[in-house]
Amino acid sequence: MMDLRLPIGIFFVLVGLIMVGYGVVSPHDIPNITEKVNINLYWGIVLLVFGAPMTIFGWRAEAKAKSEMKNKKP
């Protein structure tokens, strides 16, 4: 069975990258408030901080499971 952390991690890395990229290229502040906050940039970073470790842990678990499967086969 696929390690679920991998698709979840990749999903949030992708969405995080989209939001960070958009936040850099086309900065949008939060509308209707006085403070200037480029929320896409900051929240995109939050998504990346969540998604990247998930991807790494999921990928490592997948790789480990695959090597165990290989060792079992012969």
């Binding site: 939001m19 949008h28 509308p31």
Partner: peptide, 11 residues
Amino acid sequence: ARYYPAGLLGL
């Protein structure tokens, strides 16, 4: 609608 800009709104 009031506080989410494009991008965060999609999320």
